[in-house]
Simulated scan of single mutants.
Amino acid sequence: MKIAIMTQPLGKNYGGIMQAWALQQVLKNAGHEPVTIDRQADVKGPAYTAARFGYRALQKVLGKRKAPINIERYLPTILQQTNEFIGQHLKMSEPLNSTAKLKAHFEREQYDAVIVGSDQTWRPCYSPNIDNFFLDFLQGSDIKRIAYASSFGVEEWEYTKEQTQRCAALAKQFYAISVRENSGVDLCRDYFGVEATHVVDPTLLLERSSYEALYKNKEIHERQGVCTYILDQANWKNQVVETVKRELNEVQYYNQPKASLSEFSSSNLGDYNMPSIDEWIKGFADAKFVITDSFHGTVFSILFNKPFISLINPSRGASRFYSLADRLGLSERLFSKFDEFAVKELLSVEFHYPDISHKLMGLRRESERFLAGALIY
């Protein structure tokens, strides 16, 4: 089958890239032809562009922004290595920055099915156009509609009344719906009036060896110690890191840009450059311990059998952490604040991976059955 995949724009986030790659791999292994749709944000008008320039200029004058006002022009360099991975390892559509272009693409390509997911594709504040991620542009088409591990990100309802009405009607046209969090099952039932199945993120459908193959035989410096992958800095998170380093007597290393594109805290453009996907994955493979506030950082810690601590970011979506941890018996590894006693206690307990691996295998099989069943004509 020729299958289109609707997911978030790729390039700036390692987890987003890896879940897109993993889903393509799973579909290819099953004999399908997947294409990830490059749905970019709609083109903004002159008024928006002028307002953004003015806001950034003011932030610069106030000393709250160190990055260039026109940092977008440097994105090809900043994202060079992640975009190279996408170009080499994923089959993508052309960039589509409007509903009209999206509709025309699907009419031209004649896909047999479309899969929405994974990642927070059903979170309105994250998706370029939330109606598109419920396939509003396919009205009148008989293409098979599937949601695989689509995520709302949070437990509370973030849709407006109008969005709820539109998306509920569109959700009822899906052949099969699965979500990444347990809370998503409830949200689909309560607000859309549809049944959904709880499945794992696409990255968890692949074995560890699939990721090792991406960096095998490449010259990547090996590191030892505590690997940190932290997206949002905070003092309490630093306290957790320092406690773990001290208790384990290990050094810290990380595989991410020195400065975030969401904070613009550096005037040095090189600080925003994203390391390669190979380096990012191998960072987890080499670690003795991982500390992360990223959902996919947590996933790769589990895949590589590494003891870890996950630091919860409520604004980015906490339900996905709790949902996965509950199903694997890892809830004690989630922290929402610094608790020195709890950190030390956790470090004193053996990380018993065979139990986790057994549970993960069961979840993986359930998810594979859902996806295979949804794609049968």
Rank of each mutant, 00 (worst) to 15 (best):
I5P: 06
M6L: 15
Q8L: 15
P9R: 04
N13F: 08
M18K: 00
V26K: 09
V26G: 09
N29G: 04
N29A: 12
A30F: 04
A30Q: 10
H32E: 12
P34D: 12
T36Y: 07
Q40S: 02
D42K: 10
A47C: 10
A47T: 12
A51P: 02
Y55L: 15
Q59C: 10
L62P: 08
K64R: 09
Y74H: 14
T77G: 04
L79A: 11
G87K: 08
G87W: 07
E94L: 10
L96K: 06
L96F: 02
N97G: 11
T99P: 01
K101E: 03
K103I: 00
A104G: 00
F106H: 00
E107Q: 04
E107C: 03
A113H: 06
G117K: 00
G117S: 06
S118F: 04
Q120I: 11
P124D: 02
F133Y: 14
F137M: 03
I143A: 08
R145L: 14
S150A: 15
F152L: 12
W157T: 07
E158P: 10
Y159D: 13
T160G: 09
Q163H: 14
T164E: 15
L170Q: 11
Q173P: 00
V179E: 12
N182M: 09
G184T: 08
Y191E: 06
F192G: 02
V200S: 14
L205A: 07
L206P: 01
S210Y: 14
E212Y: 07
A213R: 01
Y215L: 11
K216C: 10
K218F: 12
R223Y: 11
Q224T: 12
I230Q: 05
I230K: 02
D232C: 00
W236Y: 08
N238E: 14
E242N: 14
K245V: 02
K245Y: 08
R246D: 07
Q256N: 10
S260D: 07
S262C: 09
S262Y: 08
E263F: 13
S267W: 12
N268I: 05
M274V: 13
P275I: 06
K288C: 02
K288L: 09
F289L: 03
F289H: 06
F300T: 00
F300I: 05
F304I: 00
R320K: 04
Y322M: 13
S323A: 08
R333A: 08
F335G: 10
F335Q: 00
F335L: 08
K344R: 15
E345C: 13
L346T: 13
L346Y: 11
S348R: 15
H358A: 15
L360P: 07
M361A: 15
G362W: 08
G362P: 09
R364E: 11
R364T: 13
R365Q: 15
F370L: 02
